[in-house]
């Protein structure tokens, strides 16, 4: 997977705040419905799963179908009680995983 992820997480929050996280990753999301110039079906090749964890504990995930647009965008919420590290993972049909980590601090 030559995909590149971008994730937007606030740098710091007040304990107990519910924040919004945005993620975008470049990927063709080949649906498997298209045909090439010779009429042969182009095989499906998508990111089929996304998961978000905080300090190793998964709190949110998405099972993704080919109907999700290319360069899949996901926006979701999380309640932050303490400083820690987010881990985001994208898995494709071949089972390859891309991982991105981001720290978050508490406002002092």
């Amino acid at each position: 997977m030559a995909a590149k992820p971008r994730v937007k997480v606030p740098k710091s929050v007040a304990a107990g705040d519910v924040i919004t996280i945005k993620s975008l990753i470049s990927h063709k999301m080949e649906s498997g419905q298209r045909k090439d110039g010779d009429g042969n079906p182009i095989p499906r090749d998508i990111i089929n799963h996304f998961a978000a964890a905080f300090d190793g504990e998964e709190f949110f995930s998405v099972d993704i179908d080919p109907a999700v647009s290319a360069n899949p965008y996901l926006e979701f919420s999380v309640r932050v009680d303490e400083a820690g590290t987010f881990t985001f993972t994208w898995t494709d049909d071949a089972g390859e995983v891309i991982t991105h980590e981001q720290d978050i601090a508490l406002k002092s």
């Binding site: 937007k8 975008l24 470049s26 965008y73």
Partner: peptide, 10 residues
């Protein structure tokens, strides 16, 4: 961030 074209810029 929301602009998907920025993936190309990156």
């Amino acid at each position: 961030f929301d602009n998907p074209g920025m993936l190309g810029v990156e």
